[in-house]
């Protein structure tokens, strides 16, 4: 019952409903892993499907993700105590010269909602910084976002830098952003193109499983 309440509260973007629900669930002795899977991740999966089907849109996803983050703040210490492992690791960033972050942030939220650990490098991320982050975090996936035609070229430069560092075989590279297309992704040597955040999360899960 309480898990269902958490799930519904998250889908409504109700921060208080989610955090109070998690506290109640913990008090009732439910396992943190079960709260995560059946309360939070299941709700984010519903949001992802509805987003893909144009049943909910960016505002609804943003408030759901905000509620997810608030819930994770409560749950994370208990998850660490019980040793719950993420399903995979992602390094994510908006490419050099590009300061737009809404799309990248949506992707981060959907990734986190899928059980992935995300190292968000932020915006205006240089190729060198991506390379350093791969060495540091050893992700399975590198995600790059660009909103501008003037910065899309940086995706290619970053992929080249990853190759030059001898790291290309260690990661799958996913690209996206308003001006990016599947053909462009292919042209620059990315492995996966995602047209929106929901698709990015769907593709990421396929890559790590």
């Amino acid at each position: 019952m309480v898990l269902q309440e958490i799930n519904q509260a998250l889908q409504r973007g109700d921060v208080n409903g989610v955090t109070q629900g998690i506290k109640s669930a913990l008090e009732q002795g439910l396992e943190p892993r079960q709260i995560l899977n059946e309360g939070l991740l299941a709700a984010m999966e519903v949001i992802g499907i509805k987003f893909k089907n144009n049943e909910v849109f960016v505002p609804e996803v943003l408030i759901a993700a905000r509620a997810m983050n608030a819930g994770m703040e409560v749950l994370k210490p208990r998850l660490i105590e019980t040793g719950v492992e993420p399903i995979g690791t992602v390094v994510l960033g908006t490419v050099k010269g590009d300061l737009h972050d809404i799309g990248k942030n949506l992707v981060r939220m959907m990734f986190e909602g899928s059980g992935l650990t995300v190292h968000d490098l932020g915006v205006d991320v240089s190729a060198e910084r991506f390379v350093e982050a791969i060495k540091e975090y050893k992700p399975q996936i590198v995600g790059m976002s660009a909103l501008l035609t003037t910065t899309m070229g940086e995706m290619k430069a970053t992929i080249e830098a990853i190759k030059a560092a001898g790291l290309r075989d260690q990661v799958k590279i996913m690209v996206g952003g308003a001006p990016v297309t599947a053909k462009f992704a292919q042209e620059v040597g990315a492995d996966v193109y995602a047209k929106d955040a929901a698709e990015a999360a769907f593709e990421a899960k396929k890559l790590v499983y």
Binding site: T149, M152, G153, P179, V180, T181, K183, F184, E187
Partner: peptide, 8 residues
């Protein structure tokens, strides 16, 4: 005509 497609 898609402008970003023009790039390549």
């Amino acid at each position: 005509v898609p402008p970003t497609w023009l790039l390549y």
